[in-house]
Design a protein around this nucleic acid. Sequence first.
DNA 1: ATAAAGCATAGAACCAGTTCCACAGCAAAA
DNA 2: TTTTGCTGTGGAACTGGTTCTATGCTTTAT
Lengths: 332, 332
Amino acid sequence: MANIRDVAKASGHSVSTVSRVLNQKGYVSEQTKSEILSAMEKLNYHRNDLARALSLGKSYRIGVILPYINHPYFQKLADAIAEKALMENYQVTLLPTNYDSKYEMKYLDMLKHRAFDGLIFTSRAISFSQIIKYRSFGGLVCCEDTFDYPLSCAFTDRKKSFGNVLKILKDAGYSHIGLTVSRSEVVSQSAKLTTQSYESVFGHAIPEGMLYRDAKNMYDGITAAGKLVENDPDLEVIFANGDQIAAGALKKLEEINHQALVIGQENLSSSFLLDFSTVDHRLDSIGETAFDLLFEDKIIKKEIPSRFIVRGELSEIIPNEDEDPLDKIIDK
Amino acid sequence: MANIRDVAKASGHSVSTVSRVLNQKGYVSEQTKSEILSAMEKLNYHRNDLARALSLGKSYRIGVILPYINHPYFQKLADAIAEKALMENYQVTLLPTNYDSKYEMKYLDMLKHRAFDGLIFTSRAISFSQIIKYRSFGGLVCCEDTFDYPLSCAFTDRKKSFGNVLKILKDAGYSHIGLTVSRSEVVSQSAKLTTQSYESVFGHAIPEGMLYRDAKNMYDGITAAGKLVENDPDLEVIFANGDQIAAGALKKLEEINHQALVIGQENLSSSFLLDFSTVDHRLDSIGETAFDLLFEDKIIKKEIPSRFIVRGELSEIIPNEDEDPLDKIIDK
DNA sequence: ATAAAGCATAGAACCAGTTCCACAGCAAAA
DNA sequence: TTTTGCTGTGGAACTGGTTCTATGCTTTAT
């Protein structure tokens, strides 16, 4: 493998001149340039990016921290980040954690070790204060509200969007509502906001047994629907924490022949296929924004508004006047 | 940022001794070791992975080349590769190409530039002979049969599995069969095998209008089903090139109230949810194997057998004796 | 005529690691 | 007693780039 010194020797010029040709900056005569170029050709030379990165102190790589690599929510978010990053000539590496703080710390350590120029947290198990400690080692952005912590973020106000959906349900006369969350509200910010929204809309806590706390995939959705109907035979609505969970729930409801509304989140293809309403958290915007903030000098916090996509029987029930803060969309 | 020389100076030892402590190899006395360790602690020292990679000539990074980052088939395959790679302490970067050979060449160039130790092609636009040129720059593996080309691969015999499914359909008395492929059989190996299998089972080419050539996602599935029924009002079966396409087709068939069997591929959650049969190409096995082959010295080619997962009405029709080369599974 | 500015190039230091080699001390084997 | 082998350590070269600085040589402006 030829290196820059080999090229210099072969062309009869100095290393610095070769470097100038390589980077197309500084003064190089046409004559010299073509001599060096042909030497490169002859030696089959290609610049070593690792050496370049070491010298520059910048690797043009970022990492996206996400709990599950094959989870639709995080996948969609990661895709959005990757799309923007690739446009800016950055490479993106997906870093799955399974919500294990050990992994999160490991990836932060990789930032320390200069494996990345920056990290985007799509979700997390560790605290903000832990993350902040690593600020001096590279860019850091979270995809959730970081409140008063000195940490950039791009996020949707879930309390607002959850509250909006719940209010619509309340106004439409529904009261037997089951909810699912991925993790207990003690550890999950999203779960906490779900219960808080419920309380503020309905004026009381979610009734015992109407909150299913371990909904991570379609199969959990099946289980959740079973439990919720078992706990409340008059169940009217299931507000799930994702379209995949909603899809599973719908399947179960059909199976046991229980009539109830199902609402999902993220506007995945399954919600369209199975024709249920869904909260679109605008993951594409969030991802793009998160990347943009990564290498800003200042700490910036950006809120991106959600949309409620109304489908199926709900689209006939709810009023369409609407001056709420969300773009409400009646699909088809 | 402290470096290894700072640690050496601070601890009163040499750089090579610090390196030995860092890598836990070679002789170091307990006394020296603890002195160096505490110096590292004090200086908040962390090894620079870029410098290490440069020195070692190995970055512990691999790339996975795939046309679409959010396509279920490639996602599943990439997930399988990533899972194995992470176990072996390699980092995985997803490299989307949109079937643009420019991108594929760009990623091969990145291999040249030492950004990766190896690349796995899950699909490709360029020829095998193009890829082979880069063999000297790092590991290279394809997830399809590379035939006589000197290139490692992990793959399923699609001709075999397609033929198996088509034979089952033929034996069950179906003859009005529509098929979908993602790209024309001129460029897509998979499409070519689909048409070849059809011909060898039915003894004639796919009738005009019964092959839809641009099926890439669920929405294409909807369009495809419409066209196929239009071209043959007696359509009995749609054999789609993926579960997402099959799901779209099924939706369209229900909409226009046309009774026909739908068969997908990859055994995604949608095939389970919507209860149609599917060909499971064992992407998890393929991904794992592909990684294993990446850093083998020899060129190795491994075939992984597919499974046909039979669901819905088909499970009542087809005989269950079966000594065919595929594991046939009757689901539920 | 002379200073300033622009062009073209080379040399050497620098980024932060790894590793080969030499050398010393000491214990066990010849 | 000498040789061998193991332990422990340091120096220096090496990985392959970038960039600062110095040095000439032309032009151009004053």
